[in-house]
Design a protein around this nucleic acid. Sequence first.
RNA 1: GGGCCGCUAGCUCAAUUGGCAGAGCAACUGACUCUUAAUCAGUAGGUCAAAGGUUCGAUUCCUUUGCGGCCCA
Length: 492
Amino acid sequence: MLEGFDQVQQRRLKLERIRERGVDPYPARARRSHTASEAIVAFDEAEASGNDAPTVQVSGRLRAIRVMGKSTFAHIEDGSGRIQLYLKRDDLGEEVYDVFKRDIDVGDFIGVEGYLFRTRTGEVTVRVELFELLTKTLHPLPEKWHGLKDIETRYRRRYLDLIASEDVREIFRTRTRIVTAMRTFLDDQGFVEVETPTLQSIYGGAMARPFTTHHNALDMTLFLRISDELYLKRLIVGGFEKVYEICKDFRNEGVSTKHNPEFTQMECYWAYADYSDMMWLTENMVAFIAEQALGSTQFMFQGQMVDVTPPWRRWSLRDAILELAGIDYMDFPTLEALWAEVQRRELHVSPQPTWGKLIEELLGEIVEPTLIQPTFVKDYPIDISPLAKASSDDPQHVERFEIFVGGLESGNAYSELNDPLVQRERFEQQGLGAKAGDDEAHPMDEDYILALMHGMPPTGGLGIGVDRLTMLFTDQTSIREVILFPHMRSED
RNA sequence: GGGCCGCUAGCUCAAUUGGCAGAGCAACUGACUCUUAAUCAGUAGGUCAAAGGUUCGAUUCCUUUGCGGCCCA
C-alpha cells in the first residue's frame, strides 16, 4: 500500500501513524543506564563473576534490522559503538512487535530496555522487553555496505559522512586529541591562553590578502584576521611572558588541497626566548602531541615512516636551495639575476614579484617536497620576513625557521623583531613591494610600532597550522579531509 | 587562470556505435522465532546536473552554464 511513494513520503506516513497512536515521535528525553560499550562490558563482567545478566537501558540509532518473522535482530549505535538487539513477538506482544516491524526504520533513534544475553554466535545482545521511539528519521541513510563515496556530498553533508564512516569519525577525534594535547603541552610549559580580535582595523602578521568587511555603526572597514601575531606581541609588551592562542585565521586566496580560506592556527610567543628556543619548543610539542594523539612519535604518512622524535634536522634555507637546486642565491642578489639563473637551469618554478618571493618559491617547489622527516629550514631572506629579527652576523637574513614534515610546510617561527624604528623601515620596504605589485605585502601598522616603542623584550614566536598537523597525523593529503565543514561553493 | 575527468533511483555503480534506462543495497507486499551484507518470492521507484542546438528521435553528439575531483600555472 505504500509502494509508489518515495522513501521520505513513506516515512512521513509512518510518522502520522505513530502520532495517531498518541506516541510522541520526538520525545524530549531518553532513559539510558549504559552506553552500548558499557553494556557489553557489564555483561562480560557479570558473566565472568557468575552473576545474573544485568538489565540495561540503551539508546541509539538503528543501523540494521533483520526481521525473521516473529523475531527480529537489530543493531543500534551510539557514540560508544554498536550493540545488538533481539526482539521477540512473544516478549513484546503482537501489537507492539508489529509496530516495530511496520513503523520503525533503519536510521531511527530508539531506546530499549531488556536483559543482556549472549547469542549462539557469541554476540552480547539486549533481549528487548520495552522499546521507545526517540527520534523518527524521515530521510534514509547512505547505503550500509558501500557507505557514502561522493566527495561533494561527503563535504557538504558531513553528518552523513560521519554516520557512514568510522574512519572519518576517527580523523576528527584525532584532530580533537591534537588540539587538546597542544593545549596541555603549552599549559604545562606555563603559556597563558588568550583571545585577541578576529575583526581587525589593520590586518597583519602574515603575508596574505585579507577578507574585508564593514562595521555599519562605526562606518569603518574591518578585516578578518590573517594572523593574530601582532596582538599577541602587544601582550608581550604588556608583560605577559608566555602567551598562546588557537584560532581561525582567514586568507583570501585560492582553495586547494592545502588551503582553506579559513584555517586554524596556534600561535605562541615566549619572552626572553629566541628562535632556537622555539625549535626546542616545537619539536618537543609535536612529539608530545604525537604521543598523546597517536600513541607514538613514529607514524606512517603516505607510505613512509615519519619520526618526530627530537631533535629534528636543522638546515639553512641557503644550504637547502644550494644542495637541491644548485643555486647559491647570494650569488644572484637581485630578482632579475636570480630569475635568469632559475631559467638557465630550467627549474620548474613560476615568476615572482620580488627576490625573496622567488627564493620562497624555490623552497616550496624544490625543497619542500623532499622534506619528509621533520626539518627546520632556517635563516630566511630578510625581505620576506618583515617581522623577524635580522641575524647579528648576517644582515641579509633573519632568525626564522619553517617546519617541514611529510613534504608539507606546517609552521613558521622567528626571533621577533622588537626594534620599533627598524620595524617601521621594514614596513616601509613592504610598502615599496606593494607598489611594485606584491598584493601580499605587509601593510604599515603604526599602532603596532607604537606598542614596540614602549618596549618588547627579546621574544621568540611560533605559529603551527593545526589543519596541516592533522593532515600529517591522520595520513591525509587534502585539507578538506581534516576540516569538518570545508569551504564549498554555493550549490545554487 | 588553463587542461583532463565526473554528475544516471535515497546510496553504490552499470548500460547506450543516437531508438521503451539496469543491478545490488535501501523501500514496499508476503514467508520466516539465534540473525548479523540474514535468506526466499514479488512490487514500486528516474526532469539520466541545467539550458540551448543538431536530429524523425538526444541520457548518448555539439555549445554554454553550474557543482565537484585531479593535474598544471
